[in-house]
Design a protein around this nucleic acid. Structure first.
Lengths: 169, 169
DNA sequence: TATTGTTATACTCTATAACTATA
DNA sequence: TATAGTTATAGAGTATAACAATA
């Protein structure tokens, strides 16, 4: 790949391939153990860690890239009785999402296998020091991406549509 | 997340979120600049780096998780005239995939923006030393995952009906 | 018998645009 | 006018199973 020094190239490829393998393995595990997609798991975990209730937009943040995508996933979770949706008393435009007991149970059911898998796939070959370092590096990369104006440097020439969708969040 | 020490938890979350953001940003760029999905880009890159021709199974390795998925993507690339498929003279079961001039041109068109994006999103906040370290750590994680018995250890898949029946008890 | 690849099919997910309703 | 959320719909991608041909 011209334009990227070998060191960076290697790091980039390792990152991409590892992330792809990890995502695939995790999806298998969540599906098998609790019939959840990764996104559904993330949404439930977010509610789990937020004392149970969040508004749709709060819930979406960082997990899903379109409003309708969240509505779709929330619809599935609601149909499975893992969450409920109700109007927000404080803002009649918003809807508050609440995790149900069944939702918590589903997380409880899935989590041990998930933790075990992550431990085996990503942390097994790393020392405690390595883990700290990795957390630091990836944390910086993540923060960089969060801070990036998503489309700013993308060539203006081609499609205006893609940009609009992202920018509107 | 019970069962995972805070350090590991932080590293895991940073990794997952960064990977998700990166994937999304890269897909936008490839689509906008060259009308390619990430997978199609990876397949073309693989051919690009392999002196032009590979067998379907060689091509699939590490990029795609099912045979039919590769056939589908190869079909799209062939329809776009970025690759050709022909019987392998050395093994009549196999088919050899070859990148076309148009395929190379497409890569040439997409690569500058891609490199620029990756540089900005992942390498900007890292020193040269950091990059080496990251490459080392993620390389080890990747190798660990490659070594894992992919499906053999997973519990036999149940049918959807069985799962429903059990869940409703 | 095992392997390579394709096809048929059904399913999941994503995203745009149009819409309602409230701030 | 802007924001929160839903719906309709269309398209992209994925995976399993059945299949044909070759090793």
């Amino acid at each position: 790949m011209p334009g990227l020094p070998p060191r960076q190239l290697g790091a980039y490829f390792a990152l991409v391939e590892a992330a792809s393998l990890l995502q695939h393995a995790v999806e298998q595990q969540l599906k098998a153990d609790g019939d959840l997609s990764y996104i559904q798991f993330q949404l439930l975990m977010r509610l789990f860690g937020a004392d149970g209730r969040l508004t749709m937009t709060e819930l979406a943040d960082g997990v899903v890239y379109s409003r309708s995508g969240l509505t779709y996933q929330a619809g599935l979770l609601e149909k499975a009785a893992l969450i409920t949706r109700a109007p927000d008393p404080r803002d009649d435009r918003a809807t508050v999402v609440t995790i149900t007991d069944a939702g918590r149970e589903r997380i409880d059911r899935v989590l041990p296998g998930h933790v075990e898998l992550v431990r085996r796939l990503v942390f097994a070959p790393l020392s405690d020091q390595d883990v700290s370092t990795l957390g630091d590096l990836m944390g910086r990369v993540r923060d960089q991406m969060r801070a990036e104006p998503p489309r700013s440097a993308a060539p203006r020439k081609r499609s205006q549509r893609n940009r609009d969708a992202r920018d509107s969040r």
